[in-house]
Structure formats: C-alpha cells, structure tokens
Design a protein around this nucleic acid. Structure first.
Lengths: 318, 318
DNA sequence: CATCTTATGCTCACGGAGAGTATAAATGGC
DNA sequence: GCCATTTATACTCTCCGTGAGCATAAGATG
C-alpha cells in the first residue's frame, strides 16, 4: 500500500459495488408500535440505489413514497455496512447497505401495497417492559444466559460475560436500560439464542421468542429502535407519529410504546407543557371513557425556536 | 416503479458505484486539538474501499494504520453520502463516501508519512470559545449574518433566518451551544460566507476566517467534531486521546480543547472522581509549575461495569 | 519570606425530576 | 339517582445533581 494517504485507488482499478437502501419505517397506532415489513414480515423494505436518485436521502424518500403512498415526515440515516454473503460470494463484500429510520403514521399509508405493518415487539418480545419485565426473561432467558456465561473458557471471561448479560438485560437488581436494544440483540446472537445465530449450521433453533428476519435485517431493526428510543428523549420526534390532534394520554401512550416502559403521568404532562411543545386546539376528545380530555396539536414553532427540544421521559422506577 | 417494495433492482440492470472511506482523525496535544490532513491541510485522508477489505470498519482501520503507523483505538462511523460532481458527472452520484471518526494520540503516529496534523480550529475559528467568543464573531460575522437574514424575500422568512443565526451562534443573549458545529457550518455555507459556497461562480471569497478544504471535507469534519463534542458528555471517549498517565488538569484541558469552552475545575474533578473513571498511579507529575498534581490513569474496567459512563461537562456560563 | 501557581477540600443554593395526594369530570351499571 | 370506574388535572414534597464560590495546601521563584 502506498505510504502517502491519498486517493490511491484513483490510479488503479476501481472496485465497483452496488448500494442498497434499507428502511426502518415506524408507526404507532393505539399505543402499538409497528414497523413496515415485506415478504410476510420476514424482511425490511429495501431497494437498490439508482443513478436517477439525486442523493441517498431523496432516493430513499422518493422510493418509500412510491411504495407506501405517503410522504415521509422524518427520515434519518442509521448506519452503513458492507454485506457479505449476500451475493453468494462469502468472502468479499460487493454490496453496501445504507439503512434509514423513517417515521410515519399507519393510516397514511395507502392500501393495495404488498408491504404491511407488523408489531415491532413481535421481533423483540424482550423489549416490552410496559407491564414489567416479560416473564420469559426470568424463566427462560436468564438461565440460558447464565449457561452461556459459564461456558466461557476462563473464570474472568465467565464473569465478564455475565456482567455483560446483567447490564444489558438489567439482571442482578440492575436497572433496565431501554436504549440497549442493539446490545441485547447482539448478545442474544453471540449466545446463539436466536435463529439468525445458527444459520447454516443445520439447527436454526429459536430458544427465545421473537420472529427472525432474513439477512441482518433484525439487526438493522434493532439499530433503528435503539436510535429512536434514544432520540425521543431529546428531540420531539414522537409528534411525527401522532395524528394532527391528540390527547396528552395518547401522546403518553405513544411514548410508552416506543420506550417499552411506563412513564409517570403527571410528570409527563408537566414536561410537555413547560417545554411548550403543544397547544390546545380548543376541542375535546369525543367517545372517551372517563373525563374527556383536551385535544392538543404540536407547536411546529418549537423546532425553529430551540436548538434542542426534548421529550424527556419521566420514567417510573417501579 | 414496481408497487411492491421488494428488491426490485435485482431483476434489472444494477447501477454499480464506487465507495470511498473518509477519516476524521482527532488527537489532542497539550490542550491543542488536531486533525489529520493530507495535501497540505486541504483534505481529509481518504481512500477507496476495496474487495480485500472484510468490512468497512476493518477496511478503514487497516488502511489508517498503514498510513499512520499506529493502531486506532476508537473508530466510529459518522455518515454516508452520495457524492455528486466528484466524477465529473454533475447530475448523478456514482460514488459513495462513508466517513468515520477516529481518536488517537499525535505522538503515536509514525514519522515519515505525508499526512500531518493540523489544528482543528484553523478550520473552525468560530468554534473556539475557551477565551470567550472570538472577537470576529461580533465584529465581522454578525453583521454579515444580519445582512443575509435581511436579504430574504419575505418578512417572516427574514425573521426565521435571523432566529436560526441567533440560535446557532448564540446571538441575542442566547447561550452558546458548542454541539451545533454542523449547523453553524451549514449556515455559513448557505449565507455564502465561506469559500466552499462560492466555488464555481468565479469569486471564491472568504468572508470569515478559517481554512477551507476540497470537496465537502470540511463538512465531514464538522460532522465529526459535532459528534465528538456530543459524545464526550456521555461516553468516556476523552481517554482515547490521553496518554496512559495524566493529571486531572491535563484531562480537563483536553476536554476543554474539544468542547471549545472552559469547565469549572472543582466540579470537573468531582464528576470524574464520583464516576470512578480514573485511579491514582501513586506517582506525581514532574516538572510542573505550582503544586504538583497526582498522576491518574483511566480505569478500563468502567467500560465493562457500566452501560453508560459519561464525562459530563461542568460548563461555566461566565 | 512574599508571591505566584496549581491542587484539593468543602459548602451553599437553586432547580429539575421522581413520586405521591387530592380533586374534577365524565360514563355505565344497578 | 347513586355509586363505582375511568380519566383529567392541579399541587406539593423531597431528594439530589449541578453550577458556583470560598478556603486551604503544597510546591516553585525571586
């Protein structure tokens, strides 16, 4: 290799590759978080990057809109990686995948498309802690993680493994950290507890509940969820998922759906109001149980007014 | 376009492209933040992605190590974008750039390489607020931004533009937000105050001080600095830039160099200690002015112990 | 010894955030 | 019509993180 770090490749043969765009499209309907899938829920929507696209962002945007019939409000790049084994050649990556996170609403997606919405907790059942930790974590998962930790070669390695399990899954009386979606997925992969880990070796066993996806799509999905869970805490992105008018409880339910855990109602309202993220429409919610709630709309002005505007989560510890 | 969002491109002609890897390599020496540059400081080191690379990350890592003679401790993907006009064809992007942020130490880079270190505030003089806001912001920049805001078509657009200026540059008694590096760069670009904005139209004028770079490299650099300034607040990445032993003041100076603003000394120490990020080596710093300081080293254990470990910045408001 | 510089310990006050209590306003069953 | 239930909304209380400042210690230098 040339000693001078310059664009050395320009003078020799250039390795040409292809680029794919992969989308994690999220919606929340009635407190149920959804993601757009194709192929019967086994893959994320993806398509090739073409020369007609002016840029990656506009390429994906145009492309998604053609698929779903709805303009994407929010679109954010997630991660880029080189795929191996996708084009058959297992050694060298000849294809690059650029993944994006997009936020929409389910009702805005046109009918008659092959893509459909799937529940995101179908793919990550261990991520939903709204009713407390799912029982299978303690019953089924924890013993398997313990066994995996024990199977390490040396004693310090065993401790290190278990520490990692405890941190990512909130075991040993540690707090549950909802942002570690990707770390948990990767841990389960390494421990061989999900089907993706055992591909090719004959026994594609699924120890832990949760639907797998083709290729590394579930990993991309985990990346998207992690990003979104982190982002709702310091940017008002939840509103991209809400209808134009909503009650504060509906807003709270959406946040809880994304975060996978409950928030303290009064504190949540305090935060939303003191940040002036919403304004009253004047109308009240109809067909409700209990005392009717005021309807609110998002104040788009805050996006311009502030450099950072969050939707901090007043998380309950109980 | 096919209605079904599937890998439609697989069945037709595939648009092949090339991929470049671009690196933002950062070091801090004696409180001076540096970045690695090539071509006399006018470009970031970059090289083509080749089939021999097993993955993007390892590709860049091997590649940088060959250039600098030093293994990179920390490497993180920044952003991917499609380049236009680079291959001559201005319309369609045929090349993709994948940028990375890497952290090293200057003294660890081997000699005899064409790449060399440049001060990062040479490229972003408006970002260094360690001695208060640079005078040229008030004297030179603010009037130009005001003029640019005024030049908008409508009155609300003018107000919107000025609001954006005020937020990003902390004008009108707003607080300076050191994380908005990219937003500031893009604003200066839009306002036509930096050479990059006026390329091709004959007069490549530079209203504001600061060295330009070829292509969009200064934008990539801005992306890297923004990411780093944000990251030091919740991940202990500063230690990647420190020698194995250091005093707390040296650590503080490095943080200040990155953040571009001063921190409260006592509070900084309190944070570092209560987070148990460092441990005493037992030795004291030699050849110092004033009372000698204890030497510390980074406790690598914290990376495993905690999911999140920050180096929060106790920023002074004065 | 006086002074300068840096290191280090301690206190104080404010505000944000978690958590709980209390009250209001609607619906539906009996 | 009354009561249970559900949701909305208003307050309060307390703890602790954090910004800020004061005070003292420990070295060098003249």
């Amino acid at each position: 290799m040339a000693k001078t770090p310059t664009k050395a490749g320009a003078s020799r043969s250039v390795d040409a590759i292809t680029a794919d765009l992969v989308a994690v499209l999220v919606a929340v309907t009635d407190g149920a978080p959804k993601i757009m899938t194709i192929a019967g829920g086994s893959a994320l929507p993806s398509g090739p990057f073409e020369f007609t696209h002016r840029s990656l962002q506009t390429g994906l945007r145009a492309w998604v809109e053609a698929q779903t019939g709805h303009p994407l409000g929010y679109l954010e790049q997630l991660y880029t990686f080189a795929d191996r084994g996708r084009s058959g050649d297992a050694k060298a990556p000849h294809s690059i995948s650029i993944s994006y996170l997009g936020l929409t609403r389910e009702d805005q997606v046109g009918a008659g498309f092959a893509a459909h919405w799937s529940g995101w907790y179908d793919y990550f059942p261990w991520e939903d802690h709204r009713d407390g930790a799912p029982p299978f974590i303690a019953k089924l998962l924890t013993p398997r993680l313990k066994a995996w930790a024990k199977s390490a070669d040396s004693s310090p390695l065993q401790r290190e493994r278990w520490q990692r399990c405890a941190i990512t899954f909130g075991l040993d009386n540690r707090d549950w950290n909802e942002e570690l979606v990707l770390q948990r997925y990767e841990l389960l992969y390494e421990a061989g507890l999900i089907p993706e880990a055992n591909r090719g070796n004959g026994r594609e066993t699924s120890v832990v509940p949760g639907k797998p996806m083709t290729s590394d799509h579930r990993r991309i999905l985990a990346t998207g969820l992690a990003r979104l869970r982190a982002k709702i805490k310091y940017r008002p992105v939840v509103f991209e998922l809400m209808p134009s008018e909503f009650t504060l409880l509906q807003l709270q339910r959406s946040v809880e759906a994304l975060a996978g855990r409950l928030v303290h109602k009064q504190n949540f309202r305090r935060l939303i109001e003191q940040q002036e993220l919403v304004e009253e429409t004047g109308a009240m919610a109809a067909d409700t149980v209990g005392r009717p709630a005021k309807l609110f709309r998002f104040r788009h002005g805050v996006l311009a007014e502030r450099a950072v505007a969050g939707t901090k989560l007043p998380l309950s510890r109980t």
